[in-house]
């Protein structure tokens, strides 16, 4: 059984500021860790591999330094890594990202199962998983928070919906996005770090993909365009209270009474 996990390298700190002088972005956090939500996807894949006698491949798209994230996934039990890096992939929105990842997955041969985290901490859209499934023409399930059973043909999972828990069976090949509750991610293993030091990371560029048309990737393949970025608006009628704790507590007390909450 072959399992693919899609991972992303994200900045350690997600703080970003605007230079007030020319309204441009100031330096953003350096991309340096695996998206925390992806750790749950990796853990799920590694657990399944152990019970199902399979192999796990991590696929990531990003600049060359993303190799560090793939190396880290090796320390968590991932067997193979693919890094998709090419200038043609730059500036991709949800659609172009999903399309590129789906092509990278196809280039390695269609897996039985693809697992994604629920969202990234920098893009925060949570939409790439379902779009990859669409491009691969396979079904998907989101919000999976328990694997009930798995066999050669499919898996039974529980999904955490707002008011219900649904148990469903889905046949392979398919894609699932997993929730935090699924398994506790393991810590990177020093033993695996040593063992996988020489393990290669397969680099993929546009030339390695089934669809080699650059118009379908990166900025050119992105239907959405960022017109501008700007700081959020601040509240106009604001009272600032900067006094002793005693006075502050009095003012809050009076305000809460006025609003009839006390």
């Amino acid at each position: 059984m072959k399992i693919v996990v899609c991972i992303k390298q994200v900045p350690d700190s997600s703080k970003v500021d605007i230079d007030p002088e020319n309204m441009t972005l100031k330096r953003y956090g350096v991309e340096s860790k695996i998206n925390p939500f992806d750790l749950y996807a990796i853990e799920t894949a590694v657990k399944l591999k152990q019970t199902m006698n399979g192999m796990v491949c991590a696929v990531s798209m990003g600049p060359p330094q993303t190799e560090a994230a793939i190396r880290e996934s090796y320390m968590l039990g991932v067997d193979e890594g693919v890094l998709m890096t090419d200038r043609n992939f730059a500036g991709a929105d949800v659609l172009a990202t999903s399309y590129a990842l789906s092509q990278g997955i196809l280039a390695g041969g269609m897996p039985d199962l693809i697992i994604c985290g629920r969202q990234t901490t920098d893009g925060d859209t949570g939409q790439v998983g379902p779009e990859i499934a669409e491009f691969l023409n396979i079904p998907h399930l989101a919000y999976v928070n328990r694997i009930v059973q798995a066999d050669q043909d499919g898996i039974v999972v529980e999904m955490d919906m707002p008011e219900t828990i649904e148990t469903v069976r889905i046949g392979f090949p398919c894609l699932i996005t997993v929730e935090k509750g699924i398994y506790q991610p393991r810590l990177p293993s020093f033993k695996l770090k040593m063992e996988t030091r020489e393990r290669p990371v397969r680099k993929m560029t546009l030339a390695d993909l089934p669809d080699k048309n650059p118009q379908n990737y990166g900025l050119k393949g992105s239907p959405t365009q960022v017109i501008r970025v700007f700081p959020p608006q601040s509240s106009t009628q604001r009272e600032t209270w900067d006094e002793s704790p005693e006075t502050l507590s009095e003012k809050i007390y009076d305000k809460l009474s006025e609003l009839k909450f006390l």
């Binding site: 994200v10 605007i18 972005l25 953003y28 920098d122 959405t224 365009q225 960022v226 970025v229 700007f230």
Partner: peptide, 9 residues
Amino acid sequence: YGGNIMAHI
């Protein structure tokens, strides 16, 4: 970008 910025798309 996960931070204190709004994007107009």
